[in-house]
Amino acid sequence: MNAQDALVEYLLRLGDNALILGHRLSEWCGHSPALEEDLALSNVALDLIGQTQLWLNLAGEVEGRGRDADKLAYLRDARDFRNVLLVEQPNGDFAATMARQFYFDAWHYLLLHGLTGSTDPRIAEIAAKGLKEVTYHLERSQEWVLRLGDGTEESHRRMQSAVDDLWMYTGELFEGDEVDQVMVRDGIGPDPATLHEPWLGLVRATIEEATLTLPQPGWAQKGGKRGIHSEHLGYILADLQFLQRAYPNATW
């Protein structure tokens, strides 16, 4: 794989993770447990939509085929999306949303931290901006894991089942492939495997403090990075892309 193709692929992964998770969080707006949460979840979603624009615009620029962030977000089919399976999982209850967010934030934080040292200054700059936002996202999702884990009996039960159910989607975050190899070789991004230990340390500490049990290592579902998704993604795209598909070439 040549360096340019690998870089485009890598940027699509970064952008698609932010896009799909931002989309999922935006589904909560107006339906969350309290007004304060409508505000906070929307804030996180807005940060992620902003990061999507930066990553996907850069992907389009590097690709050089005249596609911008909107074209990439609205005019690709599911097989061309590169997000990890974790972010497309349905919102479920508030515990499931927060478990998904916490697993992702802990990883996202470490990844962006690594990317701030990228040899590609465009990537280092986006990562530095994103890292400020994600530092706050992580604090927030951590806090909710604690509240729900160490709250009431019901919240503890729901949070435990959420961290258990989503555990199998975390393995993919640390799985490297030839794209990652090129990134490591060129000093653009960190080796995903090196993020595992610090991630596990962060996750273990929070889960234990929340009086929850860390799930056992097990089978990891993967495929998102290569475009093999769950059935959920197609429905996300059906909503997301409806207008662009129904009215081709219109401007909005």
Binding site: L19, H23, S26, E27, C29, G30, H31, L35, E36, D38, L39, S42, N43, A45, L46, I49, G50, T52, Q53, A69, D70, A73, Y74, I236, D239, L240, F242, L243, Q244, A250, W252
Partner: peptide, 28 residues
């Protein structure tokens, strides 16, 4: 909120989400 997930561009989506968020803020 009915159109947040179906807004036609990333910018329109961000504008709409921020607007609905402001309404939650006004409510508060």
């Amino acid at each position: 909120g009915n159109w947040i997930t179906r807004a036609p561009t990333l910018e329109r989506k961000a504008i709409l989400l921020a607007k609905v968020q402001d309404e939650a803020g006004h409510g508060l």
